[in-house]
């Protein structure tokens, strides 16, 4: 009994007081600053996932591996800014000179601002996004404080949060789960794999047809997405203040 109290006392208070304003370690590779002088095609040759286009860096494809930054620190620098989520695929492309991410449009006219239930489907990824999504509910990040719950049954869910690039073998189960969620329902894509197929995009073992039929309302980049990015994105989506 006393051991238990001792362990609990030493544990102290672990929650991040405000995950929306906390500053993260400077080593964290978040929102990149892309210089006007950057040679995008040269950067694209370097990138293991061809995440650069002629318009800039596509955070939906970026693995945040840092290869470009280590080679050309004068062209690209990743800031420790975890607020990466956006509400449309287009907005994930960071143009040269862009210094902030666009605002996220809230859903449901405030209906969800205090309560939002999500059902996760893991479909062909590497389990890192799943662990980070799980971590966003732990004592440190504690997304539950905003009324967000990750539920077991799709019947109880407002949204489906997808992780993984959608392997062929998960395509059917993903559709079934989506069908089981009552309307109105929302789709959230978490991590580079869910958004673009990520490192597996060119695999012949994927079936991303589901995303041709359904539009996501939130895109959370990362490989994996950081829990703070997840907490921030969902909090904004709910329209919570």
């Amino acid at each position: 009994m006393f051991d238990l109290i001792k362990a609990r006392a030493r544990h102290g208070y672990q929650a991040i007081p405000d995950p929306l304003t906390v500053s993260i370690h400077e080593k964290f590779p978040g929102r990149p600053d892309l210089s006007d002088k950057a040679d995008l095609s040269e950067l694209n040759n370097l990138c293991p996932n061809s995440a650069f286009t002629d318009r800039g860096l596509d955070l939906g494809k970026c693995l945040f591996c840092g290869l470009c930054e280590r080679k050309h620190p004068d062209w690209i620098q990743f800031n420790p800014d975890f607020k990466l989520a956006v509400d449309s695929r287009e907005k994930l492309i960071i143009a040269p000179g862009q210094t902030r991410m666009p605002e996220i449009a809230a859903i449901g006219n405030g209906v969800f601002k205090r309560s939002f239930a999500m059902r996760n489907v893991s479909a062909g990824g590497c389990n890192a996004c799943e662990l980070e999504l799980g971590a966003s509910t732990n004592v440190n990040f504690d997304i539950l404080r905003y009324g967000v719950e990750i539920v077991a049954s799709p019947r109880h869910a407002d949204a489906l949060i997808l992780t993984g690039p959608i392997s062929k073998h998960m395509a059917e189960a993903l559709c079934d789960t989506w069908q089981a969620i009552p309307k109105p329902k929302f789709l959230i894509l978490c991590g580079a794999c869910a958004i673009s197929g990520g490192i597996f995009a060119v695999s012949s073992e994927l079936d991303r047809g589901f995303l041709k039929h359904w539009q996501a309302c939130l895109y959370i980049p990362g490989c994996p997405a950081h829990p703070l990015s997840i907490v921030h994105g969902i909090h904004q989506l709910m329209g919570a203040k």
Binding site: A128, S167, F200, S203
Partner: peptide, 26 residues
């Protein structure tokens, strides 16, 4: 259900640049 063709993807492109893929095996 998680099969996504990792061993095949290892053969596409330069084998010395597959760190991100190796990190995503698990």
């Amino acid at each position: 259900y998680q099969h996504r063709g990792v061993e095949e993807l290892m053969l596409k492109g330069d084998i010395t640049r597959k760190c991100s893929l190796a990190e995503s095996i698990a």
